[in-house]
Write a protein that binds this DNA or RNA. Structure first.
Lengths: 239, 239
DNA sequence: GAGTGGTCTAGACCACGGT
DNA sequence: CCGTGGTCTAGACCACTCC
């Protein structure tokens, strides 16, 4: 995978940028110069630059060139992307926090009208309904409320839910193609108050995820309720 | 702009997808068929598909084809992207809420060590420091705390801050290239409690934005503190 | 093995920025 | 005007999926 032309160019350029090699002019060399240096095609060079741009390191201006973005320790921190598809791991996975999981509820049910309206699952299909608390550094930090389409996921058990559902999916050949996410701040419910270490806070962050397999079918609806002051979400917006 | 080949193909395919024209097979026609139909190059067709994928409508699988993602009213809602570069407008701009602005504070200052550490501005440079409350539907919903590099932005006044700073920038030729964002949930400060309609809630959402001009220079650091239960942020993650 | 998307090459012309 | 990135074409070969 890493031996693709554009990826090699990307990695070399990235290293040079972070080492400050282009910081005098605040510009990347022009495309023709990079094509000559790497003895490759324009396609590969442009794809490498596009990857750098997606990461927030550079910005292309038509008619002028490829500009480097200023980067400080603070703005660098913003580059730790939220691109992890896994469940809790997406929350500041880079810290590699140790955590335990407590399964609060585990059962199967049929989707009714009310559940259908917010999960987007069809009425009548069977789902696994799971509630788990994630204990991070000894703190009850996250309440995960999952609904998995039972027809599109391998068989689940409470024991699997205590370990890693996503690893279980991976082992059984379920491929996650796309996740749509929504973030909001909400007043804590009684369930949140009971399960999470909110201290004096009476609100939670709610990360709603809808996941699709590689056949385009939704197999998951999840709400992750998390305590304040602990988790960050990063995003990059390009013009 | 809209007459580019790939953009035309994109719009046509998008319309067909939303009209359900491909929903039987849950697939897009293969690339060669689209090349033939639109009498264009593979480049244009692939670029159109890439745009659909970025939007969360399709997903390409090597060796199989381009799969349509299931879309329901709920998952469609997730497509309203957070791609607006403007300040408050990025918060659910599609609703076109009427709002008023109250300028709470407006002054110039020099960046000291403490301010430098969280804004990423260099110590010693002059900045505009502005605090504004956004009153949405009569509710004090957002507290914007802005710092603008005075050397890289056109002259600002309190009157401009009451209207639109971004329109003022645009008129004066400042181009916003990239915005890096961070989202978190925090315990409300005394300032938040004083300025926002928090009711019984004691937390806020905090959207931190660092904006760069098209020369790659940071010109803005902003914190937008917003009340719970009112704003949503969407995101799409692809594998 | 046939079908399909991913990568790559070698060109061409256009649109925009700066001089 | 020149230099630059953006779009586009016409091909080629590779990697993966499915039968």
């Amino acid at each position: 995978m890493g031996s693709q032309t554009f990826n090699e160019i990307y990695h070399i350029l990235r290293e040079r940028i972070l080492a400050g090699k282009y910081s005098v002019k605040m510009r990347l060399p022009i495309e023709d110069a990079l094509i000559a240096e790497f003895d490759s095609s324009r396609y590969a060079v442009r794809k490498a630059i596009a990857k750098l741009a997606k990461e927030g390191l550079v910005y292309s201006v038509k008619g002028r060139g490829v500009v480097l973005l200023e980067h400080s320790p603070q703005t660098q921190q913003f580059n730790l992307a939220l691109n992890n598809l896994n469940g809790l791991q997406s929350l500041n996975a880079e810290r590699h926090l140790d955590y335990q999981t407590e399964v609060v509820a585990f059962h199967q049910q049929i989707v009714d009208q009310a559940l259908s309206e917010h999960t987007a699952f069809e009425v009548g299909i069977p789902v696994y309904a799971i509630q788990r608390v994630r204990i991070v550094d000894g703190i009850r930090a996250v309440l995960d409320i999952n609904y998995f389409n039972a027809q599109r996921t391998p068989t689940l058990t409470a024991a699997i839910a205590k370990r890693s559902i996503y690893q279980h999916f991976k082992k059984n050949g379920l491929k996650i193609a796309v996740v749509k996410r929504m973030l909001r701040v909400e007043t804590a419910t009684e369930l949140d108050q009971a399960q999470l270490a909110l201290d004096d806070n009476n609100c939670i962050g709610n990360m709603i995820s809808i996941a699709f397999n590689d056949e385009g079918r939704q197999f998951e609806y999840t709400e992750s309720h998390f305590i304040p002051n602990k988790f960050n979400f990063n995003e990059l917006i390009r013009n």
